[in-house]
């Protein structure tokens, strides 16, 4: 449904999921009761200890500003489950889905709960791109960065029998205007920015690119398979199956160093195209949190990422750990926004 939000769900290696997990029915009860359990916080106990540190007095609620089954939902549910299983929290965290408007509905919900330290949400590049497109009443400045957790990358694909061998070759043909490039999200959103930025870095005129937006990376890939478009840009996770089967060929990946899952694909940087693009994922909270509250959550997620279970899960989902604490994450968000703005201005979308 969401047109702006890309729900990048990255898989693990095929066949690696045969182990069983024993989560049981608790998660069911939690989800089933979601809408009913949005109890107001407050009360007399504000969770501040004598030494001034803070700890939650009730269950932390993690909002996925999208429907179940997407990338944000996966992140929210995975972290909630591991936080509980690893015994890092006293109350089982609850996952709340607030789908709509590419995330803006969920962000609105969090914004309305400013100062509530028990309400976090999962986030990724759309928190910058959707507001830049003017489609959200709130942008990343309205929230408190907690931590950046993991990242995934973009991959640039052509058909297996294409005569294009390198990203430079792709850029050259795209610039000539007779090559169409499919992506899984609307103009001005992730896939388009990842394409335009890379073209620009390769010295091509990104405004000449014939970018065709599809509803999701999968659709873009089928169109490429069927020869309806000539190239595609999607998340690594989405393309994994078709790269493995040899139906499609990658001419570049947007990471700084090669990605394990697609180790044979050269990075753009290796090809002298100075561009990287991260599909980072992180956690943010509402505005007006105290230093102590931020510190608590920051440590909580840092601890989570130290656990074996997290490492196992994130490897399976194809994520690369990319932890940043609150302050660092905030700076990163500002920088990235600037970078995006530059690219969008360049292609005439801002």
């Amino acid at each position: 449904m969401s047109r702006l939000t890309k729900t990048h769900v990255s898989p693990g290696a095929p066949g690696s999921g045969t182990f069983r997990r024993t989560l049981g029915l608790r998660a069911v009860a939690v989800t089933a009761a979601l809408p009913l359990m949005l109890t107001a916080c407050g009360g007399t106990d504000d969770g501040v200890a004598e030494d001034g540190s803070w700890a939650p007095t009730q269950a932390i609620e993690i909002t996925a500003p999208a429907a179940t089954g997407g990338g944000w939902d996966t992140l929210a549910r995975t972290s909630a489950r591991l936080l509980e299983e690893e015994g890092l929290v006293d109350h089982s965290p609850q996952v709340v889905n607030k789908p709509g408007a590419g995330g803006a509905i969920g962000w609105g919900y969090i914004a309305n709960n400013a100062g509530d330290p028990h309400k976090l949400f999962v986030t990724s590049p759309p928190i910058l791109l959707v507001p830049m497109a003017g489609d959200s009443d709130h942008d990343h400045n309205d929230f408190t960065p907690i931590a950046r957790l993991a990242t995934d990358y973009m991959v640039y694909l052509v058909a297996a029998d294409s005569d294009i061998e390198t990203f430079a070759g792709l850029a050259e043909q795209v610039e000539s205007g007779d090559l169409s490039v499919g992506g899984g999200s609307g103009p001005g959103s992730m896939d388009h920015v990842a394409l335009a930025g890379a073209l620009q870095a390769a010295g091509a005129d990104a405004t000449q690119a014939n970018y065709i937006p599809f509803d999701g990376g999968g659709e873009a890939l089928t169109s490429l398979l069927g020869g309806h478009v000539d190239a595609a840009v999607v998340g690594v996770g989405e393309a994994l199956g078709m790269l493995e089967s040899g139906d499609l060929r990658a001419v570049g990946v947007s990471s700084a160093e090669r990605v394990d899952a697609v180790a044979e694909v050269p990075t753009l940087v290796e090809q002298d195209v100075d561009f990287t693009f991260d599909i980072w994922r992180g956690v943010m909270g509402p505005a007006d949190l105290t230093e102590e509250q931020v510190a608590y959550h920051e440590t909580l997620f840092a601890d989570l990422m130290e656990t074996e279970a997290w490492k196992e899960e994130s490897a399976r989902l194809g994520w690369t750990d990319a932890y940043q604490g609150s302050e660092e994450f905030g700076v990163f968000l500002d920088d990235t926004r600037g970078e995006f703005a530059e690219i969008l201005t360049e292609v005439g979308l801002q």
Binding site: T68, T74, M242, E244, L317
Partner: peptide
């Protein structure tokens, strides 16, 4: 699409290689 999301969380990557893998 929802089913695909669920499968991926379960560690299954449906795709051209699923029949063989």
């Amino acid at each position: 699409a929802i089913l695909l999301g669920a499968l991926m969380v379960l560690g299954v990557q449906p795709g051209p290689t699923m029949l063989t893998d």
